[in-house]
Design a protein around this nucleic acid. Sequence first.
DNA 1: GATAATAATAGTAATTATTACTATTAATGG
DNA 2: CCATTAATAGTAATAATTACTATTATTATC
Lengths: 136, 136
Amino acid sequence: MRHTKQRKLILECLRMTTSHPTAVEVYDQVRNKMPNISLGTVYRNLDYLCSHGLARKIDTCGERKRFDATVEDHVHIICTVCGKVRDAETGPGISPQTLMHPENTAASGFKITGVRIDILGICPECQKRQPSKTNP
Amino acid sequence: MRHTKQRKLILECLRMTTSHPTAVEVYDQVRNKMPNISLGTVYRNLDYLCSHGLARKIDTCGERKRFDATVEDHVHIICTVCGKVRDAETGPGISPQTLMHPENTAASGFKITGVRIDILGICPECQKRQPSKTNP
DNA sequence: GATAATAATAGTAATTATTACTATTAATGG
DNA sequence: CCATTAATAGTAATAATTACTATTATTATC
């Protein structure tokens, strides 16, 4: 609701990078411009940005969450060892099989081991408990 | 390596359910048969089973990991509110667009909001640091 | 521009999931 | 059966994230 310096800085930082940083990485970055910003503020604002459609949380194969200012659906390449996330360069209408082809991922330098496909939604129980705002 | 009672019980528990339980949920379940089993043992064995191809770790939209004894690639439906995971009933060769169609997910009762596609692999840095055993 | 209301912040404490540690137990090979 | 040692139970430590609280700063209104 309020446009604080901290919030603007955090969003700007997220938009300037393609590295899908963790909360702590964002924190380290924004501290260069605002040395006494609080880590709690970074977490709170990343959540705020996600809940307002300005960023997205990414489930990696590591232990911490990463954030992405690109909110449109797109494919990620994730390292199952260190949790690193890169954007895959794919066109629309790609099939899971096509994704596995080396020519689609060679540029990343990754050794591809699999594709993960998940459908996201809201389960019956949560629909009852918390009716969706997009379908009143 | 050793087939302990605990390890067998944990795998059995994971294979008996389709609910993709968390480590704590597995712990609560196996305690019915072995009341003084340790939570650390559950975590250690779930990791062991995953690293030996007998189970899989699932990144949900919640804060804790879930486990699945089905190791073949398959599509999950994940609740973005509570992190619940269900198996999607889909045939092979499905495209991301097809996945979104209501007829493919109606049985789940979920309100579908998106599809998440990630390519999994090992990044160049981790390949150097930790050479893959499947490609010596 | 000054002022009032209050959302957001900094700093700290608390929580929670997971991992590490260590003495003891039990599975396996000989 | 016995020796070896991987695995365990129980506890402590770690690490990511969230909660709390007094203070600050943004925004709407005058």
